[in-house]
Amino acid sequence: MTTLTLEHEHEAVRTERAVPAPIPFSRIVSVELRKSFDTRSGFWLLASIAITSVLATGAVILWAPQDELTYATFGAAIGFPMAVILPMIAILSVTSEWSQRSGLTSFTLVPHRGRVISAKATVAISTAVVSMVLAFAIGAVGNLVGTTIAGTDLVWDMGLDDFLYIVGANTLGMLMGFMLGVLIRNSAGAIVAYFVYSLVLSSLSEVLAASQSWWSDLRPWADFNYTQNLLFEGGFTGEQWANLAVSGALWLVAPLAVGLALLLRSEVK
């Protein structure tokens, strides 16, 4: 019976074939988007953005002092779990192709790895932006509910520019995860590296800056994590943007370039 089905199809198409159209980039992006939540782990990582936003909002309503019950407090509380989850999503979207070995199929169906990786980056950045919008919508509801319960005045002390600063900070954090995924290409390794970078190295830098004035001066230029976290506070000066660009080139752009060069040439097994 199977042979019969085959015969039908092949008689119809085998004879004369047109050269297929190239795969459009938008299609690769939509496939990568689908791949980021079609597994249980992927789904729950994305779901955890909404869940932790709700939990953080609830925590602010329950425990925050009444005079701090403002939109900015909600924003800060929601931003914290986000800064951990988004990089994990970015890391796994890249490393799972190697750790789960699905790259064997992905890079065979699209034999230009650069296109697949660009699509993943597009999905990662979109995810960051959409998650932030969603999270701040949840925060806004929390602000409404919280102030109503507490009977305090509604305070919307966050403008669009504050929002953009926070989105920018979290997107850069996510791109750090993406970079580590590209460079290390192993889920466990990249996740550990991310925590070493964001927790261990930043604490060391903190300690060093407290005792050594030369580092304290150099820090905004050389410690990307530090400068990136300053974004959460907003109000950047021209020099701070320069700090961000220089430290970002050092910690994000350069290793990403190395990682991409290696990834494009490596062997997929």
């Binding site: 782990s41 992927g42 789960q100 070995r101 790259g103 064997l104």
Partner: peptide
């Protein structure tokens, strides 16, 4: 192309 049937995301 089928190179390794086990090379798939186990969670899909």
């Amino acid at each position: 192309v089928l190179l390794d049937a086990s090379a798939q995301h186990a969670g899909r």
